[in-house]
């Protein structure tokens, strides 16, 4: 509607302009030549104004015949854009994880009693998940073993088969033994608690693995 209104306005102004210019024309032999050129100018103005309206109609109402080619090109561009976006997000996630593990390492170095060798951080990497990018788990790789050979809650042995000691009818494994009263167990629990509290995680989400 706006385009039609603009077209009518333009046509009115063009007609008035044509009348005004016609008044300037000389009366003699040259009149018809000047009038012809002026007519051409009016045709240009009118055709341009109508052309804009026609192009507006095509875009809004009728899909053009060459739409398929455009769609194919567009889908290729969109696929490339999606791939680039995925790669960029993956890189950003890796960078975020790396930065976070460095931060955790700096934090656990404050805890002198437990030497931490490496830190692994797991974050939510599903793009469609609502908690995308959120911290899921922190795994601390600790050197050696505790002096008592026992672990606190969340501590797991790596590369060592669980040892089963059978005395009578009682079965015990190293992993399930908790001894919070021993100094080493208390230190690990303290470390887990510190990291968990710092990142607002539950203590189950922070693990210690011995190497």
């Amino acid at each position: 509607m706006e385009a039609i209104r603009s077209l009518v306005q333009n046509l009115i102004v063009i007609i008035i302009l044509a009348m005004l210019l016609e008044m300037f024309l000389p009366a003699g032999e040259m009149r018809k030549y000047v009038k012809m050129v002026m007519g051409l100018l009016i045709i240009v103005a009118v055709v341009q104004a109508v052309g804009e309206l026609v192009r507006w109609d095509y875009r809004d109402e009728i899909p053009p015949l060459t739409e398929k080619n455009n769609e194919a090109e567009l889908s290729g561009i969109m696929a490339a854009a999606s791939r680039i976006t995925g790669n960029q997000e993956q890189k950003a996630l890796e960078q975020y994880k790396s930065g976070l593990s460095k931060q955790v390492r700096a934090l656990v170095h404050l805890h002198k009693e437990t030497p931490v060798l490496e830190v692994d951080v797991k974050v939510q990497s599903g793009r469609n998940e609502p908690d995308y990018g959120q911290l899921k788990e922190i795994i601390l790789f600790v050197a050696g073993e505790t002096s008592s050979g026992k672990e606190s809650e969340g501590a797991v042995k790596e590369g060592v088969e669980p040892v089963t000691v059978q005395i009578g009818s009682t079965i015990e494994t190293d992993e399930h033994i908790e001894n919070r009263d021993s100094p080493a167990g208390a230190a690990e629990a303290d470390l887990i608690s510190m990291v968990a509290n710092f990142y607002n995680l539950s203590t189950e989400q922070v693990k210690i693995i011995y190497r």
């Binding site: 210019l21 300037f24 024309l25 000389p26 032999e29 040259m30 000047v34 002026m38």
Partner: peptide
């Protein structure tokens, strides 16, 4: 001409043509 969206180059040409016609006449 500005209101009608006619380029100034076209209007300039028309004015020149009118001038030529008058002088020649």
């Amino acid at each position: 001409a500005d209101r009608a969206g006619i380029g100034s180059i076209y209007l300039g040409t028309i004015l020149k043509i009118i001038g030529i016609a008058y002088i020649a006449e």
